[in-house]
Design a protein around this nucleic acid. Structure first.
Lengths: 100, 100
DNA sequence: ATTAAATATCGAATTTTATCGATATTTATG
DNA sequence: CATAAATATCGATAAAATTCGATATTTAAT
């Protein structure tokens, strides 16, 4: 875990928003069209719609968040579902608490 | 207090290091040449020496940290002493804990 | 009043980030 | 297998961050 890299990932309004929204997908995102719930996370396109940014940008953002471990993904068919990695988030917060 | 702006300030190894070093100046910095202690903080030049970066860069870094409220300064004669703003740091950490 | 020391600001060069549209890839479906 | 849908990657451009050396400013000491 690299604290500064995680801070970089969170040093952007949209990426920070996404992290917060993913705490409670029901509250923040529209339902998946195929009726699937959010138990595996939220698919890229639904996040894209919420932000209003381009698909490529959001895909890129989500990759960054994944690269530093803040989110996890599952691929199911043609969809990639993104959800928070609460383990890593806890680790990050306590490490930051400890050293800062 | 702007969470994302604070994250940007901490999204750099040197600035993060400085914040950490300032937790315990006695441990991390050489003494001030005029014999002054660290009760008001650490002067720019001593921080500059520790990092090995240029004076202008470190001055700039310290300004960024001050702009977001992570450090406070006192001017005494020709010296500017920088020290942590623990109040703000606490606020930042608990806000981050709360929303992330 | 000059000079010297500490810090801040300016201007510039380089690197990194942000962001898009276009294209490639993967998977499901007719 | 051809097509469509979802996502990922590529290439490009604009904006922001990094970092320096040079210069300006402020204060102390002669």
């Amino acid at each position: 875990m690299n604290l500064v890299e995680i801070n970089k990932a969170l040093a952007n309004d949209t990426r920070m928003d996404i992290m917060c929204w993913l705490r409670d997908p029901e509250k923040h995102f529209r339902k998946h069209k195929d009726g699937k719930g959010f138990e595996d996370g939220v698919c890229v396109n639904v996040i894209k719609e919420k932000t209003g940014m381009s698909q490529s940008t959001i895909s890129h953002y989500l990759s960054s968040l994944q690269r530093v471990g803040l989110v996890q993904t599952v691929r199911v068919g043609k969809w990639t579902y993104y959800q928070r990695n609460d383990d890593m988030i806890r680790k990050f917060l306590s490490e930051l608490q400890l050293i800062l």
